[in-house]
Design a protein around this nucleic acid. Sequence first.
DNA 1: CTGAAAGCGCTAACAG
DNA 2: CTGTTAGCGCTTTCAG
Lengths: 338, 338
Amino acid sequence: MSVERSTIEHVASAAGVSVATVSRALRGLPNVAVSTRSRVEEVAKELNYRADPAASRLAAGRSRTIAIVVPMINSWYFSNVVAGAEAVCAEVGYDLLILTAPDAEARRKVVTTAAVLDRRVDGLIFVEVALPPGELVELGRHRLGVVTVGQETVAFPSVRVDNVAVGETAVCHLVELGHLRIGVVGAQAEEPACFDVPGQRIVGAERALASVGQPLDRDLVVNGEFTVDGGHQAARQLLTGTRPPTAIFALSDEMAFGALVAARQLGVDVPGRLSVIGVDDHDVADVMGLTTVRQRVTEHGALAARALLHHLSGEGHPVEHAVGSIELVVRGTTRAVP
Amino acid sequence: MSVERSTIEHVASAAGVSVATVSRALRGLPNVAVSTRSRVEEVAKELNYRADPAASRLAAGRSRTIAIVVPMINSWYFSNVVAGAEAVCAEVGYDLLILTAPDAEARRKVVTTAAVLDRRVDGLIFVEVALPPGELVELGRHRLGVVTVGQETVAFPSVRVDNVAVGETAVCHLVELGHLRIGVVGAQAEEPACFDVPGQRIVGAERALASVGQPLDRDLVVNGEFTVDGGHQAARQLLTGTRPPTAIFALSDEMAFGALVAARQLGVDVPGRLSVIGVDDHDVADVMGLTTVRQRVTEHGALAARALLHHLSGEGHPVEHAVGSIELVVRGTTRAVP
DNA sequence: CTGAAAGCGCTAACAG
DNA sequence: CTGTTAGCGCTTTCAG
């Protein structure tokens, strides 16, 4: 009835060799005669044999499993990063565990119980979770591989974008269209001490404005929580103010979507009376005709996974920091100021 | 330098008992003196001891890991189902593995290599992946726990919604508003033989229409691929036809969003000249003011995980089929026909 | 209530 | 190139 599991011993005896040889043959290790290897492989296939991961983990000390730590998984950004990592893992036969760390406490728990993870996974990918110095040290104690996405540290490889450049690209575009009074729909950094995506994008915005001798009006920077709804509220606030901006730079496409809805509800024509630009190139941006600064989110996840796997298999590679490309995608929501 | 791992033996000797007792004490098994148990627990905490999952898996035969199989993970629906499952797993200390099976081939691979999973995970949650009878049998051969989300089978517990009721609820609402010429932005079922979400929702739509003696015009049923862009295209087609509908039932909110964009681009006022209703209650539905039929997606994932864990721990429970609640949420995109 | 001992299935020296 | 032999760290009878 129930399918029989074949062990390495079954394969060994069926192929007339020792278990050690089976192990070597099946893992592609050297020092196995070609004929032996092919025979073993054949028998293994026939018996539908697969090494028990737990047993091999226990014996070898590696689990062929990595974990990805995200603040949440049901958001466009994070689910895409995870998708990228998943694809790479699937490709090379690694398992991908999902860990959510919505707040500092949860993150700390992940780090401090890394002792557990140490046994359970070979490595960790932290996505946009700010690791304070103390926790970095803590992580370093284990022989876990670590890669960060978003934050760049000296200790571990990372994948990120240049967020100052993101802000600069976006606002340069607006400035070139003649906009000077620019609202920003942004967000608060959770742990400003570590890394601060919204802050850096705003720095970029300021820089772009500075190039035409214009300061960024801080009253025009409103928190949009990185959600559609938050962007909606923020834009509403901006547009109903005494001197509304002629353009809005939303720090994410989802906030930009909210801004577009707000503009429509308030009867503010886009791009006639208001230009809107976002960041991400969310799937929906195309349909909505949203001008945006594209970042290749899925690719970030894939790069991180690859870096981690590389680190795990290879020997003493230097800590590398990948900086993903960004790209201005002009669609219909931005136009020259009248 | 590197953190030392403590094994069960360390704990045993430090507590002055045998490893067997430590094992029992820490897992809450009976037949351990209260004093012994508390002493062991204390020592374990002090030594920061955790059982090596691989070792305990090997010895006990269970991995405290489950896998969730989704067609893709970077979509609102699936990432929310995963989020629900993840929360439950985190709560009880189970690990959650993500497996993507975008097509029949990939799905088949998951099933046929269930032999692998059999060793690696204790159970599987299949989300909206149609399992043909042959593969169901195949899965039954293993001693894996299986729960399906979306599809209901005789073999395994499931979580789903009544999709006929979904369609009926949506279209009833439209009919009550006086709409009779209703367009449907739907999708093709991948494997019509197994279960067919779009098909069932359309059956529900027909039933609602039938209650007022109206047939569903098949020419008004267009494929929207379950994406925003697909919904956009489909709605465009519908609205530029010779006799455009007065209302559109989109089988998902994301397709409804696309429809709203299409309407706006074509200058069709919503809800003035066109009513639109979706399904899901996507986060963005609220901001967009979209009328929809809500289903509790995250809850589905949680329920499935709970059912699976229950099945894994408990003994011989009957196969249960949960049917999630649905709810009409009326917002601004539907209105009585003029 | 507790301990001793036999594995779980595989990998990794170490010999041959 | 291949076989032998220790374990990896834990769970689980089976005795006491």
